[in-house]
Amino acid sequence: MPNYSLRINGQVHEVEVAEDTPVLWVLRDHIKLLGTKYGCGIGQCGACTIHLDGLAMRSCSVPISAVGSQKITTIEGLSEKGNHPVQQAWIEHDVPQCGYCQAGQIMNAAALLADTPSPSDKEIAARMNGNICRCGTYTRIQKAIKTAAEKMS
């Protein structure tokens, strides 16, 4: 099995895995970073969203062989103290219900705000549409993203 040297949350990790292994399972099973979640495995739900060089990606659909030297950021590495403005806004609006989708929602929202600092309602809806929340926290997510945008401006 090939060996990969991965840059994850500012640290280098060596793993030996089959080249078609999705980044999601490398993170969860090999690095034991469990915040990134499995929801569908086919790029439909967004529960597994991470950042690859700052861009939101579905880690279930990216094979480890495609990562190369790109930097991986997971929910655990989004901020040092768990206080990224998006995380703060999520707490302030008490967004989570079951909480399972929220790591993916937060990672996608953080990527959105990084390139669109004050998104319109329509932009938020369009960009967040790939992240399913089965519990239905969408209205709170909408508000929390607005709050996070204000914090960041």
Binding site: L34, Y38, T74, I75, E76, P96, G99, I106
Partner: peptide, 16 residues
Amino acid sequence: NVDGRKITTGEPLFGI
């Protein structure tokens, strides 16, 4: 939510 902080920082909480 008492687990709000753990959820938003990706701490392991779930069965999976």
